[in-house]
Nucleic acid binder design. Structure first.
Length: 418
RNA sequence: GUGGGCGUAGCUCAGCUGGUAGAGCACUCGGUUGUGGUCCGAGAUGUCGCGGGUUCGAGCCCCGUCGUUCACCCCA
């Protein structure tokens, strides 16, 4: 009887040892600055009521119209695998009245997100993000701090070849005024069918077109930043000032376009230089209307999402991953089956003493076991035989230079260090 | 969703103008019975992604399909 193999679903990225160690490290580096700034964990469902994203992310976005994993559950409810994190956080904040306490609500999250796109380098159908949200306060200092936290995450990874682009999308009035003029401008252009259709849905998208001829046409298009209200402009000036004070380097990108509809005011993106087409490693911004749209108070908020998969690719490209292999302190080999119990007991004792210890399994030859110890990268090896069992002490072999050091099983600290 | 490249042992790949598969690495064992990294020897491993077609004969040609990859699109 032979069973067929089952493959992973298309487009999912899996992290297996030893690469998973790098993945875990990257994720930690990215989120640590947020923890240090007082953000607290929020664990949310990976699936939500479809309406949350339709309403929250926006019906005009590609994310909602063609990239969501939507299905009906057994109770006839329309369910969607989350394509991004902010809407879910907002839903939970509103539902649990977190915004009735001290503001801003500061939370972080980490997990997988889903988008049914054609897979490509750095683009997967299931991908990982860490992110934060600060909800309920509209303070340019907060905008700057949020951006600085994201930037610190990338710095923690040792990345250098990335840039931070920022812009302000202004408030509702700013955007409405700009949109009128921009539509007028675009109507005068000679665009192909698909492009002009896209322009109807969101004219800002045309700014993001990569074709040189389009870029040239758009060179003289009206820029949103020229339409900012006094309030928006003032707010943005302060953000830039604080960023400068924080030593966060940025570039203004007046043509930045984000894929989610809810962004207003300060908006930003981190772009890496070595990643090919999928170069965005993180992004975020302020969202004035989102909470109200989802049935909550009319409070503003700001947050970001950082791509863990892409950050890892960037770290690989820049060769900044730590070389240290994740190794055990102690590798324990039992000489024959009779000694296995002693070996297991010793390993458990070593772990209680605060050291990582692994046991060689499979009853292979001592030579094979030593090879296994070598490959595991363990710092020390202990061979357990009759004399060890009788005396209660072991000879620890330091693998780096081969020296043998005798020590009582209960006093590993003397050799392995604190 | 649209286009192009690719798909041979666990990994990296070779396989000439079609004649039914190979290398290196890795893996297991051994080089006399309690100590690794080098060296030497031995061994196991593939329905050549899958399904059709052409042919006396296909890993090599054709079609389809799936996967992968790059770009478009989109974005983390």
């Amino acid at each position: 009887m032979k069973f067929e193999k089952i493959a992973a679903p298309k487009g999912v990225r899996e992290y297996l040892p030893p690469e998973s160690n790098s993945f875990e490290w990257v994720r930690e580096q990215l989120i640590n600055p947020a923890k240090a700034a007082g953000y607290q964990l929020m664990e949310l469902p990976v699936f939500e009521d479809t309406a949350l994203f339709n309403r929250g992310v926006g019906e005009s976005t590609d994310v909602v119209t063609k990239e969501m994993y939507t299905f009906e559950d057994r109770g006839g409810r329309s369910i969607t695998l989350r394509p991004e994190g902010t809407a879910g956080v907002m839903r939970a904040v509103i539902e649990n009245n977190l915004d009735r306490g001290q503001l801003p609500v500061k939370v972080w999250y980490s997990g997988q997100f889903f988008r049914a796109e054609r897979p490509q380098a750095g683009r997967y159908r299931q991908f990982y993000q860490v992110g934060i949200e600060a909800i309920g306060v509209d303070d340019p200092g907060l905008d700057a701090e949020v951006i600085a936290i994201a930037d610190q995450g990338f710095k923690n990874l040792g990345l250098k070849n990335y840039r931070l682009e920022i812009t302000s999308l202004g408030d509702a009035q700013s955007r409405a005024a700009h949109r009128v003029d921009l539509m007028k401008f675009i109507a005068g252009l000679d665009l192909d069918e698909a492009t002009s259709q896209r322009a109807q849905i969101n004219p800002l998208r045309i700014f993001d077109d990569k074709r040189p001829e389009i870029r040239q046409m758009m060179a003289s298009a009206p820029i949103l930043m020229d339409y900012l209200s006094e309030y928006s402009n003032n707010h943005f000036e302060k953000v830039k000032g604080y960023l400068a004070d924080l030593g966060v380097r940025y570039e203004i990108n007046q043509r930045m376009v984000r894929g989610l509809d809810y962004y207003t005011g300060t908006t930003f993106e981190f772009v890496h230089g070595d990643l090919g087409a999928q170069s965005g490693i993180g992004g975020g911004g302020r969202y004035d209307g989102l909470m109200e749209t989802l049935g909550g108070q009319p409070l503003s908020g700001i947050g970001f999402g950082l791509g863990v998969d892409r950050a890892l690719l960037a770290a690989i490209a820049e060769n900044t991953l730590p070389v240290s292999q994740f190794q055990s302190d102690l590798y324990i080999i039992a000489l024959g089956e009779e000694m296995k119990s002693t070996a297991l007991t010793f390993a458990a004792s070593a772990r209680r003493q605060g050291f990582s210890a692994e046991v060689d399994f499979g009853d292979r030859s001592l030579k094979g076991a030593m090879k296994g110890a070598d490959k595991s990268g363990a710092r020390f090896v202990a061979v357990i035989g009759e004399s060890e069992r009788e005396s209660g002490s072991v000879e620890l072999k330091r693998m780096s230079d081969g020296t043998l050091i005798s020590v009582k099983m209960g006093e590993l600290k003397k050799v392995l260090g604190a």
